[in-house]
């Protein structure tokens, strides 16, 4: 079906001059409005440039659900490493449950979290089997909720170190430096 110019259609087929004049609007303003492409393309280019500048090719690891990560200024880029999340009383390793922190909070003293230790140790052994000729980096990233007490953080830190992960990083929201 052909595309017609938009405009008035009513009674346009009547072959009388005065009718035609009446129905086409008495020579009034054209119904076709011109669109200024220059400003539209300018806008689109600015949006593309902005989005390209904020684009991250390395991808981002979202924090576990319910974990409110605090912010910090002097940070490093994220790395690919096992992710230990502490959300309230639950501990997750790469999304899988790995114990809870109730016993530590009740006892209020540092202790090893056995379930977490076993999972991390298992991951370490798998890595060593997959990369027999490489040194194990021993890096683990902790996603800890901002209100978790220090005894839980230190217990997790110590458990990770015992399991062969001495390089512990804390995940934070990176914010620009104040100065």
């Amino acid at each position: 079906m052909p595309v017609h110019q938009p405009g008035r259609r009513l009674m346009h087929y009547v072959p009388l001059n005065f009718v035609h004049k009446k129905v086409t609007g008495h020579g009034g303003r054209a119904t076709n409005a011109g669109l200024s492409l220059t400003s539209m393309i300018d806008f689109l280019i600015v949006v593309v440039v902005f989005l390209l500048m904020t684009f991250s090719a390395s991808g981002e690891t979202p924090p576990a659900k319910g974990v409110r990560i605090p912010s910090a200024e002097n940070t490093l880029d994220m790395i690919d490493a096992p992710m230990v999340a502490i959300n309230g009383q639950q501990i997750l390793v790469d999304g899988a449950a790995a114990g809870n922190t109730r016993a530590i909070e009740d006892a209020k003293r540092l202790q090893r979290i056995d379930e977490l230790f076993n999972i991390l140790k298992g991951k370490r052994e798998v890595w060593k089997q997959l990369h027999p000729n490489k040194d194990f980096p021993g890096v683990v990233v902790l996603q800890v909720d901002q209100d978790v007490p220090a005894v839980v953080v230190k217990s997790t830190f110590q458990t990770a170190a015992f399991a062969g992960y001495p390089n512990v990083s804390f995940m934070v929201n990176g914010i620009p430096k104040a100065h």
Binding site: V48, T54, P62, L76, F157, N173
Partner: peptide, 20 residues
């Protein structure tokens, strides 16, 4: 624009290093 908006990341995650 559609591709960049879909893949855009508005919260930048980073890390603070510590050593055992």
């Amino acid at each position: 624009i559609a591709f960049l908006l879909i893949t855009a990341v508005w919260s930048h995650m980073a890390r603070i290093n510590a050593d055992a």
